[in-house]
Design a protein around this nucleic acid. Structure first.
Length: 262
DNA sequence: TTGATGATTCGCT
DNA sequence: GCGAATCATCAAT
């Protein structure tokens, strides 16, 4: 178990490299968030590299905007963005200012604060848990993972997926731009437990698999998704589902020929 | 100002 | 396996 009082952080130089190098080196490392409610820490098992100006799949490809400004800043900061109207995703910025590049954190294993993570992930069920707690010790002994709408929340699913990872760690827009290298920052990234050097994390490069990135329609041929081979906490790969075009009333037939399909 | 859509997840069939 | 949920962002008017 990592010490709560002082956790070693990866130096800024670690992030001052191309995202395609940083992403595999992050696997096995620990990302934590100290919130008023407590600490949740995850061991990273899956990440994707996004280069900026040369990568059509990157948010930075079309240039700097208010949304992606953090990616254009110094390395070691987090770029948090909101997507699909309900989800947050977190990236770690790489390379010096002016060279937008980032690593999307896709999945991890919760190694500290699993109860708090489950509390955040179960949403309305969390209220039921807290009500039970107010009734006495019987509620306090309840397994936070047991609550669900008919389905148990498996520990392996606590942070399996980029939006789930953010929810388990309580990462939202308010943390956009936070520095993971600065002492005292609520967010931090440290080497794998038992290893002083991040490169020695996990079982080494031999255990790392690569493949196409998830959910993008541009630059799908670049194998810039990295994960720990055989790890159950890696998210399920789903190719992009082409959404049907919203039919506009009165315009007659909408294109269903799928001219945008790949 | 308007309209389309996305680095996703979950529930239902 | 399929579609809804839900809204910030950006390109196009």
């Amino acid at each position: 178990m990592p010490e709560s009082h002082q956790q070693r952080r990866l130096p800024r130089e670690f992030f001052d490299r191309p995202a395609t190098q940083v992403a595999p080196d992050l696997l096995g490392c620990v990302l934590w968030h100290d919130s008023p409610a407590g600490r949740v820490a995850v061991r990273l098992v899956e990440a994707e590299a996004y280069e900026g100006l040369t990568d059509p799949a990157s948010h930075a490809f079309r240039g700097q905007t208010a949304r992606n400004a953090v990616m254009f800043g110094p390395p070691g900061h987090v770029y948090v963005y909101f997507t699909y109207g309900m989800h947050f995703c977190v990236n770690l910025v790489c390379l010096p200012p002016g060279q937008p590049s980032a690593v999307l954190l896709r999945a991890g294993e919760v190694i500290e604060g699993a109860g708090l993570a489950a509390y955040r992930r179960t949403g309305a069920n969390a209220l039921a848990s807290s009500a039970a707690r107010a009734n006495g010790a019987a509620g306090a002994g309840r397994d936070p993972l047991a609550a669900a709408n008919g389905r148990p929340l498996r520990p392996v699913d606590l942070a399996r997926g980029p939006a789930r990872l953010c929810q388990a760690l309580d990462i939202d827009r308010s943390l956009n731009g936070a520095d993971v290298c600065a002492a005292g920052s609520p967010l931090g990234v440290g080497p794998a437990p038992g290893h002083d050097q991040p490169r020695a994390a996990g079982a080494g490069r031999a255990a790392i698999s690569t493949g196409p990135r998830v959910g993008i329609r541009q630059a799908t041929e670049r194998p810039w998704r990295f994960w720990l081979a055989g790890d159950d906490h890696v998210s399920v790969y789903r190719p992009l589902i082409e959404r049907r075009r919203t039919p506009k009333p009165g315009t007659g037939r909408t294109a269903e020929d799928g001219t945008m399909q790949q």
